[in-house]
């Protein structure tokens, strides 16, 4: 269990804190999604967890032990897979793995076994002798991930691990990451791709402007007592109806309305007909993460 209590962080020479009083309880044995737009504070939080930065105030503990003490007791407990291709382009895949294994303190049979396991996990068998700068974007991401797994960490911090990869490699990476908890590695996964987080993270937190807007089980966040209704109309929605149903204008003549319950739908359709608004398209359903985020911040995730 990773616990973050009231952690704030402000970079030097900046007015606005990057993180403000963040508190999260991240359970072990899962993939935990940290979702937020660019500049939300995700990478700062990951850097604090990786030991690259030190929190200004607040506390972070791993399994009940302060983070620094936990790292000192087991330097391999937490591993970081940065957003960049953080390896040596002039070395081969196996040389990179041997090097990072070496600096992790692995040697002999243990190093060989760990390298082999990482290669197998990331399916790099075909390219072990190839120089890293000759790999495709997807294979580089896999190598980046494999290096992170060399020390068999308890907690793996993945910072935007699918940026710039083709859809096929993205699916492979997501499947691989989703399988990690079963192998004993918990994952904190940051992304601004909501589809990815929805696909592999049972627990999430949404961060914006250095604050946790919401956190909890993904299913709970998407489940809303108030069904969402997406409407595309022939003419603009009358202001009085828009106000009553908390409508959000989503471009052109498309609106998103919040219904008190599904039973309210026939009445709304009558009112629209009375107002002379022909409904061209109607979609009644659950929230998705994009909608949850927009409800919370009134901004798009990719802004």
């Amino acid at each position: 269990m990773l616990r973050i209590d009231g952690v704030s962080y402000r970079y030097r020479n900046t007015e606005t804190p990057a993180l403000r009083e963040i508190s999260l309880a991240i359970p072990a044995g899962g993939v935990y999604g940290l979702l937020g737009p660019n500049g939300a504070g995700k990478t700062t939080l990951i850097s604090l967890l990786a030991g690259l930065l030190t929190a200004g105030n607040g506390e972070i503990s791993l399994n009940g032990q302060p983070l620094a003490a936990a790292r000192a007791a087991n330097p391999r407990a937490i591993a970081l897979v940065p957003q960049d291709y953080a390896f040596y382009p002039m070395l081969t895949v196996s040389e990179n793995l041997r090097f990072f294994g070496g600096v992790l303190g692995l040697s002999g049979a243990e190093q060989k076994a760990q390298s082999a396991a990482a290669i197998a996990f990331a399916r790099l068998e075909q390219v072990v002798g190839k120089r890293a700068d000759q790999l495709s974007g997807g294979l580089r991401r896999r190598l980046n991930l494999a290096i992170g797994l060399l020390g068999r960490p308890q907690l793996l911090l993945l910072d935007e691990p699918t940026v710039g990869v083709d859809p096929q490699s993205r699916h492979f990476l997501l499947d691989a990451i989703a399988a990690l908890p079963a192998a004993g590695t918990s994952v904190i996964y940051t992304s601004h791709y909501m589809e990815e987080v929805e696909a592999i993270c049972p627990q999430i937190a949404i961060i914006d402007q250095g604050q946790v807007l919401v956190d909890g089980a993904l299913a709970d966040l998407l489940r809303s007592p108030e069904p969402l209704l997406e409407l595309t109309l022939e003419r603009p929605l009358p202001a009085e109806l828009g106000e009553r149903y908390a409508a959000r204008h989503e471009g052109a003549l498309k609106y998103c309305l919040r219904l008190p319950s599904t039973a309210a739908l026939p009445r709304l359709l009558d009112e629209l007909a009375t107002a002379g608004c022909t409904v061209l398209q109607l979609n009644l359903g659950q929230h998705n993460l994009e909608q949850v985020f927009m409800q919370l911040t009134h901004r798009s995730l990719r802004d």
Binding site: I78, A79, L80, P89, L104
Partner: peptide, 10 residues
Amino acid sequence: QGTLQRLRAI
């Protein structure tokens, strides 16, 4: 490429 950062994190 962030390799120094990774080494520091190690």
